[in-house]
Protein backbone atom coordinates (compact mmCIF):
# COMPACT_ATOMS: atom_id res chain seq x y z
CA UNK A 1 0.00 0.00 0.00
CA UNK A 2 2.77 2.29 0.81
CA UNK A 3 4.20 1.80 -2.63
CA UNK A 4 0.83 2.76 -4.08
CA UNK A 5 0.79 6.09 -2.41
CA UNK A 6 4.39 6.78 -3.16
CA UNK A 7 3.52 5.91 -6.72
CA UNK A 8 0.89 8.54 -6.88
CA UNK A 9 3.14 11.06 -5.37
CA UNK A 10 5.92 10.38 -7.80
CA UNK A 11 4.04 10.21 -10.98
CA UNK A 12 2.20 13.45 -10.68
CA UNK A 13 -1.22 14.40 -11.68
CA UNK A 14 -1.49 12.32 -14.80
CA UNK A 15 -1.06 8.96 -13.19
CA UNK A 16 -3.20 9.83 -10.27
CA UNK A 17 -5.99 10.37 -12.72
CA UNK A 18 -5.50 6.96 -14.21
CA UNK A 19 -5.54 5.29 -10.84
CA UNK A 20 -8.71 6.95 -9.79
CA UNK A 21 -10.29 6.58 -13.20
CA UNK A 22 -13.23 4.62 -11.90
CA UNK A 23 -14.65 7.58 -10.05
CA UNK A 24 -17.44 9.44 -11.67
CA UNK A 25 -16.63 12.92 -10.75
CA UNK A 26 -13.47 14.55 -12.02
CA UNK A 27 -13.49 17.09 -9.27
CA UNK A 28 -13.54 14.43 -6.68
CA UNK A 29 -10.68 12.67 -8.34
CA UNK A 30 -8.49 15.67 -8.26
CA UNK A 31 -9.58 16.42 -4.81
CA UNK A 32 -8.79 12.95 -3.55
CA UNK A 33 -5.46 13.00 -5.27
CA UNK A 34 -4.58 16.12 -3.44
CA UNK A 35 -5.76 14.62 -0.21
CA UNK A 36 -3.77 11.50 -0.72
CA UNK A 37 -0.63 13.44 -1.36
CA UNK A 38 -0.99 15.25 1.89
CA UNK A 39 -1.85 11.98 3.57
CA UNK A 40 1.24 10.34 2.30
CA UNK A 41 3.33 12.57 4.50
CA UNK A 42 1.62 11.11 7.53
CA UNK A 43 1.64 7.54 6.35
CA UNK A 44 5.37 7.37 6.25
CA UNK A 45 5.22 7.77 9.99
CA UNK A 46 2.32 5.53 10.88
CA UNK A 47 2.89 2.55 8.64
CA UNK A 48 4.94 0.66 11.13
CA UNK A 49 2.27 0.50 13.79
CA UNK A 50 -0.89 -0.13 11.75
CA UNK A 51 -2.10 -3.38 10.27
CA UNK A 52 -3.83 -4.90 13.29
CA UNK A 53 -6.99 -7.02 13.25
CA UNK A 54 -10.28 -6.41 11.43
CA UNK A 55 -10.90 -2.72 11.45
CA UNK A 56 -14.02 -0.75 10.71
CA UNK A 57 -14.54 1.37 7.65
CA UNK A 58 -14.04 4.48 9.71
CA UNK A 59 -10.78 3.14 11.01
CA UNK A 60 -9.73 2.36 7.51
CA UNK A 61 -10.58 5.90 6.56
CA UNK A 62 -8.65 7.11 9.50
CA UNK A 63 -5.66 5.09 8.48
CA UNK A 64 -5.98 6.87 5.19
CA UNK A 65 -3.44 4.64 3.56
CA UNK A 66 -5.68 3.39 0.80
CA UNK A 67 -7.05 5.60 -1.88
CA UNK A 68 -9.78 3.05 -2.53
CA UNK A 69 -11.10 3.58 0.95
CA UNK A 70 -11.71 7.22 0.18
CA UNK A 71 -13.33 6.42 -3.10
CA UNK A 72 -15.46 3.89 -1.34
CA UNK A 73 -16.45 6.53 1.12
CA UNK A 74 -17.64 8.65 -1.74
CA UNK A 75 -19.58 5.74 -3.18
CA UNK A 76 -21.09 4.72 0.12
CA UNK A 77 -22.05 8.08 1.53
CA UNK A 78 -21.82 10.58 -1.32
CA UNK A 79 -25.49 10.40 -2.25
CA UNK A 80 -26.61 10.53 1.34
CA UNK A 81 -24.66 13.72 1.88
CA UNK A 82 -25.82 15.16 -1.42
CA UNK A 83 -29.43 14.38 -0.78
CA UNK A 84 -29.36 15.78 2.74
CA UNK A 85 -27.63 18.91 1.55
CA UNK A 86 -30.39 19.34 -1.01
CA UNK A 87 -33.00 18.84 1.65
CA UNK A 88 -31.34 21.53 3.72
CA UNK A 89 -31.91 23.87 0.83
CA UNK A 90 -28.68 23.70 -1.17
CA UNK A 91 -29.00 24.02 -4.93
CA UNK A 92 -27.80 21.05 -7.00
CA UNK A 93 -24.45 22.75 -7.69
CA UNK A 94 -23.96 23.87 -4.14
CA UNK A 95 -24.88 20.44 -2.85
CA UNK A 96 -22.03 18.90 -4.82
CA UNK A 97 -19.66 21.46 -3.41
CA UNK A 98 -20.94 20.61 0.02
CA UNK A 99 -20.13 16.95 -0.46
CA UNK A 100 -16.60 17.89 -1.42
CA UNK A 101 -16.30 20.18 1.57
CA UNK A 102 -17.41 17.40 3.84
CA UNK A 103 -14.92 14.96 2.38
CA UNK A 104 -12.12 17.44 2.68
CA UNK A 105 -13.23 18.23 6.16
CA UNK A 106 -13.41 14.63 7.17
CA UNK A 107 -10.01 13.93 5.80
CA UNK A 108 -8.42 16.64 7.83
CA UNK A 109 -10.39 16.12 11.00
CA UNK A 110 -10.57 12.35 11.27
CA UNK A 111 -7.31 11.94 13.08
CA UNK A 112 -8.40 14.22 15.82
CA UNK A 113 -11.87 12.89 16.23
CA UNK A 114 -12.53 10.26 18.88
CA UNK A 115 -16.24 9.71 19.03
CA UNK A 116 -16.53 6.79 16.71
CA UNK A 117 -16.94 4.21 19.39
CA UNK A 118 -20.61 5.01 19.80
CA UNK A 119 -23.21 3.49 17.56
CA UNK A 120 -24.24 5.68 14.69
CA UNK A 121 -22.08 8.55 15.72
CA UNK A 122 -20.19 8.45 12.47
CA UNK A 123 -23.32 9.28 10.57
CA UNK A 124 -24.26 11.86 13.17
CA UNK A 125 -20.90 13.36 12.48
CA UNK A 126 -21.56 13.33 8.76
CA UNK A 127 -24.89 14.99 9.27
CA UNK A 128 -23.31 17.79 11.24
CA UNK A 129 -20.62 18.17 8.66
CA UNK A 130 -23.25 18.59 5.95
CA UNK A 131 -25.19 21.09 8.03
CA UNK A 132 -22.04 23.04 8.59
CA UNK A 133 -20.94 22.95 5.03
CA UNK A 134 -24.34 24.02 3.79
CA UNK A 135 -24.28 26.95 6.15
CA UNK A 136 -20.77 27.83 5.14
CA UNK A 137 -21.55 27.64 1.48
CA UNK A 138 -24.62 29.72 2.02
CA UNK A 139 -22.69 32.54 3.58
CA UNK A 140 -20.33 33.41 0.81
CA UNK A 141 -17.50 34.77 2.86
CA UNK A 142 -16.97 31.40 4.43
CA UNK A 143 -13.52 29.97 4.18
CA UNK A 144 -12.87 26.30 4.29
CA UNK A 145 -10.27 26.77 6.95
CA UNK A 146 -12.81 28.02 9.40
CA UNK A 147 -14.72 24.85 8.84
CA UNK A 148 -11.84 22.72 9.87
CA UNK A 149 -11.61 23.23 13.56
CA UNK A 150 -11.83 19.71 15.01
CA UNK A 151 -12.85 20.96 18.43
CA UNK A 152 -15.93 22.63 17.11
CA UNK A 153 -16.69 19.42 15.37
CA UNK A 154 -16.55 17.26 18.48
CA UNK A 155 -19.16 19.28 20.27
CA UNK A 156 -21.37 19.49 17.23
CA UNK A 157 -21.28 15.79 16.71
CA UNK A 158 -22.78 15.42 20.17
CA UNK A 159 -25.55 17.79 19.32
CA UNK A 160 -26.09 15.96 16.10
CA UNK A 161 -27.44 12.98 18.03
CA UNK A 162 -30.58 14.97 18.56
CA UNK A 163 -33.72 14.18 16.64
CA UNK A 164 -33.90 15.16 13.03
CA UNK A 165 -36.72 13.72 10.99
CA UNK A 166 -35.18 14.92 7.73
CA UNK A 167 -31.97 13.11 8.46
CA UNK A 168 -33.82 9.96 9.47
CA UNK A 169 -35.72 10.14 6.22
CA UNK A 170 -32.56 10.64 4.20
CA UNK A 171 -30.90 7.69 5.86
CA UNK A 172 -33.88 5.55 5.03
CA UNK A 173 -33.91 6.75 1.42
CA UNK A 174 -30.22 5.97 1.22
CA UNK A 175 -30.95 2.41 2.23
CA UNK A 176 -33.66 2.33 -0.45
CA UNK A 177 -31.08 3.37 -3.02
CA UNK A 178 -28.60 0.79 -1.91
CA UNK A 179 -31.18 -1.89 -1.49
CA UNK A 180 -32.44 -1.42 -5.02
CA UNK A 181 -28.97 -1.48 -6.46
CA UNK A 182 -28.11 -4.61 -4.54
CA UNK A 183 -31.14 -6.57 -5.69
CA UNK A 184 -31.07 -5.27 -9.23
CA UNK A 185 -28.83 -8.05 -10.45
CA UNK A 186 -31.38 -10.62 -9.36
CA UNK A 187 -33.82 -9.51 -12.06
CA UNK A 188 -34.06 -9.74 -15.82
CA UNK A 189 -33.24 -6.48 -17.62
CA UNK A 190 -36.78 -6.33 -18.95
CA UNK A 191 -38.27 -6.71 -15.51
CA UNK A 192 -36.08 -3.91 -14.24
CA UNK A 193 -36.94 -1.67 -17.11
CA UNK A 194 -40.64 -2.29 -16.58
CA UNK A 195 -40.14 -1.43 -12.93
CA UNK A 196 -38.20 1.68 -13.79
CA UNK A 197 -40.72 2.96 -16.30
CA UNK A 198 -43.79 2.13 -14.32
CA UNK A 199 -42.69 2.89 -10.78
CA UNK A 200 -39.96 5.48 -11.11
CA UNK A 201 -41.31 7.45 -14.02
CA UNK A 202 -44.93 6.68 -13.19
CA UNK A 203 -45.68 5.64 -16.71
CA UNK A 204 -49.07 3.95 -16.90
CA UNK A 205 -48.88 0.18 -16.94
CA UNK A 206 -50.55 -0.14 -20.33
CA UNK A 207 -48.03 2.16 -21.99
CA UNK A 208 -45.13 0.52 -20.23
CA UNK A 209 -46.36 -2.84 -21.45
CA UNK A 210 -46.65 -1.53 -24.98
CA UNK A 211 -43.20 0.06 -24.90
CA UNK A 212 -41.55 -3.13 -23.74
CA UNK A 213 -43.78 -5.47 -25.67
CA UNK A 214 -44.87 -7.41 -22.61
CA UNK A 215 -48.24 -8.00 -21.02
CA UNK A 216 -49.76 -5.56 -18.57
CA UNK A 217 -49.69 -8.27 -15.97
CA UNK A 218 -45.95 -8.61 -16.39
CA UNK A 219 -45.62 -4.93 -15.61
CA UNK A 220 -47.56 -5.30 -12.39
CA UNK A 221 -45.61 -8.43 -11.60
CA UNK A 222 -42.37 -6.58 -12.12
CA UNK A 223 -43.47 -3.83 -9.80
CA UNK A 224 -44.63 -6.17 -7.12
CA UNK A 225 -41.68 -8.56 -7.31
CA UNK A 226 -39.04 -5.84 -7.26
CA UNK A 227 -40.73 -3.96 -4.47
CA UNK A 228 -41.21 -7.08 -2.38
CA UNK A 229 -37.59 -8.06 -2.81
CA UNK A 230 -36.59 -4.50 -2.06
CA UNK A 231 -38.59 -4.49 1.16
CA UNK A 232 -36.87 -7.70 2.29
CA UNK A 233 -33.50 -6.31 1.37
CA UNK A 234 -34.04 -3.04 3.18
CA UNK A 235 -35.26 -4.82 6.26
CA UNK A 236 -32.14 -6.93 6.34
CA UNK A 237 -29.86 -4.00 5.66
CA UNK A 238 -28.29 -2.64 8.71
CA UNK A 239 -26.41 0.58 9.12
CA UNK A 240 -23.96 -1.18 11.37
CA UNK A 241 -23.02 -3.33 8.42
CA UNK A 242 -23.05 -0.42 6.09
CA UNK A 243 -20.60 1.45 8.24
CA UNK A 244 -18.21 -1.52 8.46
Amino acid sequence: MFSDVAGIRRSGLRRAFEISGSLQDECTKLHLTLLLRRRSEIIVNVMGSSGTTRISFVDRLRGGHDQNTWMEFHRRYGELLLSYARRLGASPDKAEDVVQDVEMYLFKALDRFHHFGRKGSFRAYLRTAVMHAVGRRASQQARQEALLDPRAFDTLADKADSEDADWEREQYLHLVRWGLRMIAKEFEPKTLEAFRLHVLTERPAAETAKDLDISIDSVYQAKSRVLRRLRERIDSLDWEMFDM
Binding site: E79, A95, V176, R177, P189, K223, R231
Partner: peptide, 28 residues
Protein backbone atom coordinates in the same frame (compact mmCIF):
# COMPACT_ATOMS: atom_id res chain seq x y z
CA UNK B 1 -42.54 2.08 -1.05
CA UNK B 2 -43.01 3.11 -4.68
CA UNK B 3 -43.12 6.70 -3.57
CA UNK B 4 -40.04 6.16 -1.43
CA UNK B 5 -38.17 4.71 -4.37
CA UNK B 6 -39.14 7.68 -6.52
CA UNK B 7 -38.01 10.07 -3.85
CA UNK B 8 -34.76 8.20 -3.29
CA UNK B 9 -33.85 8.50 -6.94
CA UNK B 10 -34.67 12.10 -7.40
CA UNK B 11 -31.09 13.13 -6.82
CA UNK B 12 -29.34 10.44 -8.76
CA UNK B 13 -29.60 7.71 -11.29
CA UNK B 14 -30.01 4.27 -9.84
CA UNK B 15 -27.54 2.89 -12.31
CA UNK B 16 -24.78 5.05 -10.89
CA UNK B 17 -22.76 2.23 -9.49
CA UNK B 18 -23.71 -0.39 -11.99
CA UNK B 19 -20.20 -1.83 -12.03
CA UNK B 20 -19.98 -2.23 -8.32
CA UNK B 21 -23.18 -4.11 -7.95
CA UNK B 22 -23.07 -6.14 -11.10
CA UNK B 23 -25.83 -4.30 -12.89
CA UNK B 24 -24.48 -4.61 -16.33
CA UNK B 25 -24.94 -1.89 -18.89
CA UNK B 26 -26.63 -4.40 -21.15
CA UNK B 27 -29.74 -4.20 -19.04
CA UNK B 28 -31.57 -2.58 -21.89
Amino acid sequence: LSADVREAFQICDFRLHADDIGWSTSSG
